[in-house]
Design a protein around this nucleic acid. Structure first.
Lengths: 206, 206
DNA sequence: TTCCGCATTATACTAAGGTATAATAGACAG
DNA sequence: CTGTCTATTATACCTTAGTATAATGCGGAA
């Protein structure tokens, strides 16, 4: 299993634009993969790939905004740089509201494009970093038994062992055992660290 | 000292637009304050006022984007809904990147405007809510002595009293005293709660 | 100088958390 | 049916944390 290398995906139905953009990006040292339609891109795209997407707004079948929607619903965090030849303000605003990294107009200035791509790469790197940390935490959480998980939630709200025991209808010693396993499985050595971890994944919202 | 009531601020250099927009908003039950220029608005605006700003993009002296900049630098969280008669994509994108709540085109549909204003009001309400909570926490932090503050930072990283004492070059009992005062002044009863509070204001970033 | 806030230290005790060891019991998979 | 996982409980002991009380020293403000 090969990990795909960071790539700029270019999706535009107009071949000269694809070529021109690909050339500029390639000359700047980026790996580029160009597609003539959103469908082609979706068929090829490996979500694990780092990078960003340079996306034409107006395309025949699936347009840019629709692809943005599809990717978002699929949980993608690939930053999108839109390109458009038409001056459609509402669409640019919608794209930005939905999290587009940037929105450029054709003909696009080379430096603007490269700068946008660099920003997008950095965003992607940072989001992936956070995702990695989050999934590490979730992996640890997954090793907890239901009871341990329950105890965890009480612990991070600052409850005492005896209170937890009372609420769970058991005794303090039982709670201590679960609690010790929680600390061990979550790989922390203090309640403070535990609270930090769990804060990052929405636990303990009470 | 009267607390200003939630208001839609309208800034547009063209009187008919001001009137038309004010009328629509007023009819929908919003308090409205209209200004013919960014300067006039700045002279009158009380940052404590809740609401939002409906702002014309192109104006003679200070334009919309510049006002957005000024407000942002002043720490304003007043949501801005831009209005524009021209189809300038780069400006719409810049406005959105800089945190505009929405960006509408003239002539603006009444329902679009009202809906944008409602969204902006809600954003403002929510941000203010968070600001209030944050300032409450900061107020408590401000009551800590330098030493207590120092101890706080160690506590929320999960350090033991003896470790803290060692690092601060003092003894455990001293740390206990400071620690007790910290818990009292921050009005929490467990380390978990303390970590929660401090997480919200950037403390303990180590 | 005197009062007060701050930091410090000490003694003493209580409460709570953490660890080790061991045993029991139900559920479920092989 | 047997072994493993999970949950439970108990005993015992040690480490930390929390609290109360008291006292000392320092530096700035009145």
């Amino acid at each position: 299993m090969t990990t795909p290398s960071p790539t700029v995906f270019v999706v535009d139905d107009y071949a000269p634009v694809r070529r021109s953009i690909s050339r500029v990006l390639h000359a700047a040292g980026f790996a580029v993969a160009a597609f003539a339609s959103a469908e082609e891109f979706l068929a090829q795209y490996d979500p694990r790939t780092l990078g960003c997407l340079v996306l034409d707004l107006a395309m025949p079948t699936l347009d840019g905004l629709e692809l943005q929607d599809i990717l978002a619903k699929a949980g993608s965090v690939l930053p999108i740089i839109f390109l458009t030849g038409t001056a459609d303000i509402p669409k640019s605003v919608q794209a930005m509201k939905h999290g587009a990294s940037d929105f450029l107009t054709k003909p696009v200035n080379d430096e603007d494009l490269l700068s946008a791509v660099r920003v997008a790469f950095e965003k992607n790197r940072s989001v992936r970093q956070q995702q990695t940390e989050l999934s590490e935490i979730l992996a640890r959480l997954a090793t907890l038994t239901p009871r341990e998980r329950e105890v965890l939630e009480y612990v991070v709200t600052g409850k005492l062992n005896k209170q937890i025991a009372g609420d769970l209808g058991t005794v303090e010693q039982t709670v201590k055992v679960h609690r010790a396993r929680v600390m061990q499985k979550m790989r922390v050595r203090s309640v403070a660290e535990l609270v930090r971890l769990t804060q990052r994944c929405g636990i303990s919202a009470r």
